[in-house]
Write a protein that binds this DNA or RNA. Structure first.
Lengths: 247, 247
DNA sequence: AGAATAGTGTCTTTAAGACAATATTGG
DNA sequence: CCAATATTGTCTTAAAGACACTATTCT
């Protein structure tokens, strides 16, 4: 222990020189998902600095201990910076810390994952107009190589998302304010990569009692569909049973 | 950015002076559970240093970047140090990082939770014989106040354990090498705080096909009970449906 | 034999899957 | 009216709950 003897907590804290200890070298990365053009997309940023300058990476950055009160604050700050909106759903996924993931040495990142509706998102670019983009995710992967261990992190995030979609109402956070059950079902199907029987799906969602009719109908193509919105439950619903899935 | 301009990654890494950056101020804490004397217990350590000198706390400590290859290594090292055994189950739970949890300032801890059988554990004490103890957990709490935010962390861990026990085979990792279905059921009941119908329980466990008979019987009290052991599936089983529970 | 614990039989219930059938609209 | 999408009816299936009943052993 690098600090001198102390007999009371007060004494100890007084003797403790905070400046001797650098702020923790921790980053926060957020896997931001949306559903766009009939497929799952993730928000990626082009790195402006080494290491991995020019590579695409997840949205993240260092914790600013002078302004962020908590890790979640850091995630939210970065998220707002890049998307300009508050996310309706943010969950801590995992923390990865080891000696290899950063060429500069031991590093730690806490990973969050966020779900946001694709509608009306104004991407805020930093320097250029092309440094932040929605990228299609196929089979847990994106086309271009990612910085650090972000490809692994992305793949685990997608797995977690898929898994949770089997027993929760999470996809609702990917929907706009109001939506039809058919649209919601499509989003479930896109994430799961599998069609769902619509009778089962409607029964499941409707008996969970998390939605309410807006009173409006959506008139696209043929028969108009009833519009729903999330009741202000806020909390996601957990079903007691999984959708039967290609596990 | 505190480092000078560089045009290639090589150049950059060469110019990057690792010693300028202190090692991250990160701790790893592990909530180590066992079932002992018909109730859930957690392993606690008496703190030898300020802050919270003399208080009980979870098993944890700083990441040693020179010896630990990853956060999980740190958790395992501490765990072996305190229990003298390898844990059959270790899972990362969450990471808590904020400005308040440590009186010394911004701090981060990655929390793991471990399940180990109570049998044959030799507690290794550091200085005294009483600095490491199994403490009974009632309603997600222990009697004495805990250091830092460890009471909150413990309570969330118990919640997570309860929840997972509703749809997984996790309690098997709390059992010795071989055990009877009755004993396993009791452990489920202790964690859930609720009795389970034994027909349903046996059907659920047996059809999941994760156990095999050892061929022996346990002769306690009256009718001898069949002994089982875990098939070497290693991976915990996920049931498709929850035990109906006091959620 | 009787008490106690281990283990089974079987009927009910819950929620999902399958799939046919009906409803509502625009063209 | 027809095509297309929305929505419902209803039978089947999987797995859990309830609870009575049988089996095995010890005293």
């Amino acid at each position: 222990m690098p600090y001198q003897q102390a007999d009371t907590e007060e004494q100890f804290l007084k003797a403790y020189d905070a400046s001797l200890y650098e702020r923790p070298n921790i980053t926060v990365d957020t896997v931001i998902f949306t559903v766009l053009e009939q497929s799952l997309h993730v928000l990626l940023v082009k790195r402006a600095e080494f290491p991995f300058k020019g590579s695409w990476s997840l949205v993240g950055g260092y914790v600013d201990i002078n302004h962020d009160h908590s890790l979640e604050d850091t995630a939210k700050r970065k998220l707002t910076q890049k998307t300009g909106v508050k996310t309706p759903y943010l969950e801590q996924l995992e923390t990865v810390g080891n000696a290899n993931r950063d060429p500069r040495g031991w590093s730690v990142t806490t990973v969050y994952f966020a779900l946001i509706p694709s509608a009306h998102i104004q991407l805020k670019s930093g320097q250029g107009a092309t440094d932040t983009q929605w990228v299609k995710v196929i089979n847990g992967r994106v086309e271009s190589p990612l910085a650090f261990d972000h490809a692994d992190i992305l793949s685990r995030s997608v797995q977690r998302l898929r898994n949770k979609v089997l027993y929760t109402s999470l996809p609702i956070y990917l929907m706009p304010e109001s939506f039809t059950l058919g649209e919601l079902q499509t989003v479930y199907e896109i994430i799961l990569g599998q069609v769902i029987d619509s009778k089962s799906f409607r029964r499941r969602i409707l008996t969970s009692d998390i939605l309410e009719k807006t009173g409006e109908k959506r008139h696209v193509s043929k028969r108009p569909a009833t519009l729903y919105r999330l009741k202000e439950a806020a909390e996601p619903h957990f079903f007691v049973r999984n959708i039967e899935g290609a596990d």
